[in-house]
Design a protein around this nucleic acid. Structure first.
Lengths: 118, 118
DNA sequence: TACCTTGTTCGATATTCGACGAACAACGAA
DNA sequence: TTCGTTGTTCGTCGAATATCGAACAAGGTA
């Protein structure tokens, strides 16, 4: 956890980013982060074990989709929207648009418990 | 080969399409088909065994990215650009734009042998 | 110091994927 | 009918992926 690896913007790989965004749960995580706000991991509610969630967040981070910041024992995550748009213009927007229409994900925020039933 | 399965436009799955488009070779195939023209499989030059190429073309077809038409013993493939744009507006365009910039693929046409060296 | 919370890492397992060669099936041509 | 071409399918391999629970490490808190 200490030295979380974040690829530089110029090192983002299109196939790797596409692969990271091909899992429903990870698409759901990106949707939750789409408003640009930084979220604490504790806010994220996903129907998987915490080790599995940790794994998916790592995949997103390693691909350069998200950025993780550590503060004490807890972590905060943001979407690297600016970097992604710079390298792959329109890709994230198109994905988010499609994901909203499809309601892909199963991830929601702790502050919005009703989302679990939608 | 006989009954190639093509999902209906409304059955396209975003994660499945993203997964299909997360392999460099398959991105290369989509690039070659990006001009909308129908291509015979014999035109496609990719650095893999024919069974592997067949596999990738099947993944694209099953995900609904391409459409295969059979004529005698040979097959022709097209990009389902209209269907994809209808369900996932902007996604294919963004992918192709990024793929061009990155030169992802390693696939070219038999009619353009110079492409192998570019 | 002794907990508690938080997130990572470690096995273990099951599944999927990408790749290949070989065998096969379908069709057209000789 | 006998080939030759074309593309699919099969069997196999190693590598990667998704998932879980358990163990662990780091940092606050009592």
């Amino acid at each position: 956890m200490r030295y979380a690896h974040h690829p530089a913007t110029e090192d983002l790989s299109l196939p790797e980013v596409m692969a990271a965004l091909s899992d429903p749960l990870r698409i759901g995580l990106v949707r939750v982060l789409a408003d640009g706000a930084e979220r604490g991991w504790g806010e994220l509610r996903a129907p998987v074990a915490k080790s599995t969630l940790s794994h998916h967040l790592r995949v997103l981070r390693d691909a350069g989709v998200t950025r993780t910041r550590q503060e004490g024992t807890r972590c905060f995550v943001t979407l690297r929207r600016r970097d992604l748009d710079e390298r792959f213009p329109g890709l994230v927007g198109a994905l988010l648009g499609a994901a909203e229409a499809e309601d892909v994900g199963g991830v929601h925020l702790a502050s919005d418990p009703g989302a679990a039933r939608r």
